[in-house]
Computed example of a mutant assay.
Amino acid sequence: MQSASTSAPATPDLSGLWVPLVTPFREGAVDHAALGALVRRLAAEPIAGFVVCGSTGEAAALSDAEQGAVLATVARAAPGLRRVLGVCGHHLADTASRLHSLRGADLAGVLLPAPLYIRPSQAGLVDWFLQLADASPLPVIVYDIPYRTGSTLSRDSLLALAAHPRIVGIKDCGGDFGKTRALIADGRLQVLAGEDAQIFPTVAEGGCGAIAACAHVQTTRLAGVIALLREGRLPEARALWQPLLPLIEGLFEEPNPAPVKALLSARGEMADELRTPMTTAGVALKARLLALDQALSACPGA
């Protein structure tokens, strides 16, 4: 496969807090009014940008046309903030074509997971990412999330991918902190925590930030944790971080994004609606998340 261009795009600075946006629904359709309002609220917070149509956004349940419309709504609501688009597939030519179609798009990059369901060898995974990076007109962030894709990228595979000029970062949900440390020490990939509970150790070890579903709420506090850690101010970061842990744990007691949508619904920001086969979070969890969120908001500096 020929490269999409003769030179790599400029490497974006991915540091800070990225919000992987949920996709609000109402009566089965994308609720663009709620999405726009959510984006405008979050755009006023100290975030690096948005990840659009990722797993938290239920991208697998959105048609191509709906994904395009969601991206357009986000761009209109917060034109000054950077956007990364989730691109997922298991057919190489179709996925490459989708990447080609993004030429000229106003995006900081694409978030690209391993092909779903297939479970290739490490050599197959490396070839998959290299061919798609060749095809992409945009910087690529590897999405290492074995429990969704069925494939685990090894340390050696990720280090091999780091040599490609378009592969600039990783959303790290790999569950192997030794691998995380190795990637940070290598220094070629910008390492973003993808598991919310791992934000503190990842950034404290030298990761550049996080893509965190919990950042839909308590956004300023979470951004403050990351900023303090990057400044080496661990005691102050810990004081902000530790009160967040019960909320973060609750937000992942049921499959994401059901709990975060339940909390946003309880706050009056959208309907508590997901697309099949996702189901809404339980009533008791919803009430507990709202209480935790309100308690944190009452003591923002605690």
Rank of each mutant, 00 (worst) to 15 (best):
G175L: 09
D176F: 02
L183R: 04
I226G: 02
T149S: 15
V203D: 05
A185C: 07
D172Q: 13
K179E: 11
G206F: 10
A212D: 06
Y147K: 09
G232I: 01
T180Q: 13
L158A: 03
A210Y: 01
R233G: 07
L161D: 02
K179M: 12
L228Y: 00
V203Y: 09
D172L: 05
I167Q: 03
R230T: 02
I226H: 07
Q218A: 08
V140H: 08
K171N: 04
S157N: 08
R155I: 10
G150A: 06
G209A: 07
E205D: 13
G194S: 07
E205W: 15
L229H: 01
A227M: 03
T149A: 11
A160C: 11
S154V: 03
C214H: 15
Q190T: 11
G232V: 10
R148E: 12
A227K: 14
R230P: 00
L161C: 07
A237P: 05
I184W: 03
R181A: 14
P146C: 07
G194V: 05
A204V: 04
C214M: 14
V217Y: 01
E195R: 12
A210E: 06
C208K: 14
I226N: 06
L161T: 04
G209T: 03
A239H: 11
A213W: 03
T219W: 04
D196I: 07
V140L: 11
R166F: 03
D172A: 10
G194I: 06
C173W: 00
G207T: 11
I145E: 09
K171T: 06
G224I: 11
T202F: 01
D196M: 08
R155G: 14
G178F: 13
T180V: 15
H216W: 08
H164T: 12
R221P: 02
V203L: 05
I141H: 04
R238V: 02
S151N: 06
C173R: 02
R155T: 15
D172V: 06
I184R: 02
T202A: 03
A223W: 01
E195C: 09
Y147D: 13
E205G: 08
H164L: 12
A212F: 08
R148W: 13
I211K: 06
D186H: 15
C173F: 00
L158R: 03
Y147C: 11
A212W: 03
G206N: 12
P235A: 13
A163W: 00
R221L: 04
G169V: 10
A185K: 13
G178V: 09
G209C: 02
A239W: 05
R230G: 02
D172C: 06
G174D: 02
G169A: 14
L228W: 00
I141E: 09
G224N: 10
A213M: 14
G209W: 02
L222R: 00
A213T: 15
R238C: 11
S154D: 13
V142H: 10
F200D: 00
R233I: 05
V191A: 09
L222P: 01
V142Y: 04
F200K: 00
P235W: 04
I211Y: 00
A237E: 06
T220Y: 00
A185E: 15
R155F: 00
A223Y: 00
R221W: 09
G187P: 05
P201L: 04
L161S: 07
D196G: 07
L161Y: 01
I226F: 11
R221Y: 07
T152L: 14
Q190F: 14
L159A: 10
E231L: 15
R188K: 14
